[in-house]
Amino acid sequence: MSASLRLAGISLSFGGIKALDELSLTVEPGTVHVVIGPNGAGKSSCFNVISGHYRPDAGSVLFGDTDLTRLPAHEIARCGVGRAFQNIALSGHETVLDNLMVARHRLTRSGFIATSLGLPRARCEERAHRERVVEIAGFVGLGDKLGMPAEVLAYGDRKRVELARALCSEPEILLLDEPAAGMPPHEKWDIARLVLDVRDALGISVLLVEHDMPLVMAIADRITVLDFGRRIADGTPAQIRRSDAVVTAYLGSSRANRSASGTPRTPWGTTP
């Protein structure tokens, strides 16, 4: 099972604007941990600090016993932190297989010369990588699309390729930035089931940013809520549902938190 991921007192500023303000959270091994919050709450900044794209002004990021805080992004990936981005960044003219093989680069041991000369050891290693990529593609539902150019795939399948590419790096923890964004309801729930399969079948911890609250409540083991870069709540889905601070952050004052009929409103789309 993977190690825990711990953020301790992370602060990050851009000019005079604080994107993260002494943020602390822990992702326990083998869990789906979701980060939510209103637009501009600091969710993407949190992910960028973890994956090494931003360097925090203060605080630390620990994955097990490894301090990731000052490591570059490629070294953090080597430590077992995988990430799928919200904006799809695939090579459109390349096949799904080739897009996924890119993620195996950090796991390749054969040198440039051995690979260029097609030495037996290099050929054997590439064959093993391809077999693993085919296996992962089947796991995410892309087994029949490996030979297709990424640009001809439907939007939902391209999102699956993005997720599969992150899995192909063999991470111990997977960061997913709005994996269901822009999908129709039935495809959103397919992705939700896939996230649970990643946790249950592969034993990979998942740290997820998502705006779809019914989906969040259905798959999260734990939820951290951000507002203006600060953590305002952290707990199980049931605990977050009952948090007045969360309802206020999303919907404003208690007076605004009622429908025209006087029924309490919540961010989850249903009454408590």
Rank of each mutant, 00 (worst) to 15 (best):
V61Q: 01
H129M: 08
P72D: 07
L97C: 08
E135C: 10
G138W: 14
M101W: 04
V134F: 02
I76D: 14
R109S: 05
R109L: 13
I136P: 11
V81S: 06
R83C: 13
G64F: 10
E125N: 06
C79E: 15
T66Y: 01
R121V: 12
S51C: 14
R55M: 03
H105E: 03
S110F: 04
M101T: 12
P56L: 08
L97Y: 07
T115N: 11
R127W: 12
S110C: 09
D98N: 11
H74T: 03
E126Y: 11
P56M: 09
E75Q: 12
E94I: 09
L71P: 01
M101H: 07
R104M: 15
A89L: 10
R123S: 05
R123Q: 13
Q86C: 05
H105Q: 15
L100G: 06
V134E: 15
E126N: 07
F85G: 13
G138L: 04
T95E: 01
G52R: 04
D98Q: 02
L117H: 01
Q86I: 08
L100I: 13
R121T: 10
P72A: 13
A89P: 00
R121E: 12
H105N: 12
Q86Y: 06
S116L: 14
H129K: 12
S110W: 14
P56T: 09
G80F: 13
I76M: 11
P120N: 00
A103V: 03
A137M: 12
N48I: 07
R104D: 04
A89N: 13
R130A: 11
R123G: 10
R127P: 08
L97P: 05
V49Q: 04
V49P: 03
N48K: 10
G92D: 15
A89Y: 05
F112H: 12
G59E: 03
I136W: 03
A89V: 14
A73K: 02
R55W: 12
N99R: 01
R130N: 04
S116F: 07
R83K: 11
M101Y: 09
N48E: 06
R104F: 14
L119H: 08
R130E: 00
V133I: 05
G138P: 07
Y54H: 06
E135I: 11
S51L: 12
H93Y: 09
S60P: 03
E75F: 08
V61N: 05
Y54L: 13
R132F: 15
V81I: 06
R121D: 01
V133W: 14
E126C: 02
T69V: 06
H105V: 01
M101E: 08
R104S: 15
E135H: 01
L107C: 09
G92W: 11
I136H: 07
A128T: 12
V96G: 02
L119M: 13
L68G: 04
V134Y: 03
S116W: 06
L71D: 11
Y54E: 04
T95W: 10
A103Y: 09
H105A: 04
D57N: 10
A122C: 04
G59N: 00
Y54D: 02
D57L: 02
S110Q: 10
G111Y: 09
N99I: 12
C79N: 00
A114M: 11
L71T: 05
G80H: 00
L119S: 01
G52P: 15
A128E: 15
L100C: 00
